[in-house]
């Protein structure tokens, strides 16, 4: 038996709130009961609620900042943070009212424990990210170089966006226009300065407002990475195939065609690689309905 194991399985008498921590859907009857069992847990949970609010505000602000400064994918159907915001952001709400809302309390208890556990870590992290926000990333000069070279050769308007993705080990990320996608990819591969000859990953994502293709390129010459992205129209996603540049893009494109319904023009053999041609619908689309409900 390990320390960790024992910690995880602390008895309910010791931590009255524990059983309800993990789920919102838990039968709400459990909540008052377990609180009754350990009288001091009431106080505890109130404290935690406050902590939890501050914590959630912090993270929300954090996230917002991140979005404004960095990026990217306009969240289609609002992330949960926004929808939770109103309830979480009512510090004036009296404790009595809170007690009434049992289900909400359960959810908060969960968040409270989370806040408790992560409080130190997040506060430290929050400071850290703020610092980072001020400092340009260590990859910023590289990104600037790429953007400059591309603009010089292919024109000003081929790049929609260029930023450092701090979440992903600070990889320089470039979003191109669909029209210029192929030529940018070609340029990234064959330019002597850049030489991104290795296609590491290539896949698509349905962001509901648009499709996005993500290609992670690597230069075995310079040992540098770049993420090349392109946003596609949601109605008729269609783009020039990269399989002529990298043979390795052949199957990943078939995969994206099979599971997401993205059409690749001039692909040598575009087919439904996993599901077969008779399959109806594209499973990784967010609006996908399983064809046969029974299965």
């Amino acid at each position: 038996m390990t320390d960790n194991h024992n910690n995880d399985k602390s008895l309910p008498e010791q931590e009255g709130l524990d059983p309800t921590i993990n789920q919102e859907e838990a039968p709400s009857e459990n909540q008052p009961h377990s609180q009754a069992k350990s009288p001091d847990s009431n106080q505890k949970s109130d404290q935690n609620k406050e902590m939890d609010q501050t914590f959630d505000q912090e993270t929300n602000n954090d996230l917002k900042e991140g979005n404004e400064t960095q990026q990217q994918a306009p969240s289609p159907e609002n992330p949960p943070n926004n929808s939770e915001l109103p309830t979480q952001n009512q510090p004036t709400e009296s404790d009595k009212e809170k007690a009434k809302k049992k289900a909400a309390a359960a959810a908060k208890a969960k968040a409270a424990a989370k806040a408790k556990a992560a409080e130190k870590a997040t506060s430290a992290k929050a400071e850290k990210t703020e610092e980072e926000e001020e400092l340009p990333s260590y990859n910023q000069p590289l990104l600037n170089k790429y953007v400059e070279v591309i603009k010089e050769h292919l024109g000003e308007d081929v790049i929609e966006e260029a930023y450092i993705n701090r979440l992903s080990k600070h990889v320089p990320t470039i979003v191109t226009t669909p029209e210029a996608y192929y030529s940018v990819a070609q340029f990234l591969k064959y330019n002597e300065q850049l030489g991104f000859d290795f296609l590491s990953d290539y896949h698509g994502t349905d962001f509901e407002t648009h499709y996005e293709l993500y290609a992670h390129l690597y230069s075995l010459l310079n040992h540098q990475s770049i993420a090349l992205k392109v946003k596609l129209d949601h109605e008729h996603p269609s783009i020039e195939s990269l399989a002529q540049l990298w043979e390795g893009a052949n199957w990943p494109e078939c995969e994206a065609y099979d599971l997401l319904g993205i059409e690749f023009r001039n692909h040598p053999s575009l087919h439904r690689i996993f599901l077969g041609e008779e399959w109806k619908g594209y499973p990784l689309r967010k609006d996908y309905q399983p064809y046969d409900e029974e299965v």
């Binding site: 993705n165 979440l167 993500y214």
Partner: peptide
């Protein structure tokens, strides 16, 4: 310790990430 301080329900921040490691078969 064998486990970092992690919230019970893991929620990574909004955004995207791609990481790669070396498996016996490759990347």
């Amino acid at each position: 310790k064998i486990l970092a301080k992690v919230p019970k329900v893991v929620k990574p921040p909004k955004g995207e990430a791609y990481v790669r490691i070396e498996s016996p078969r490759g990347e």
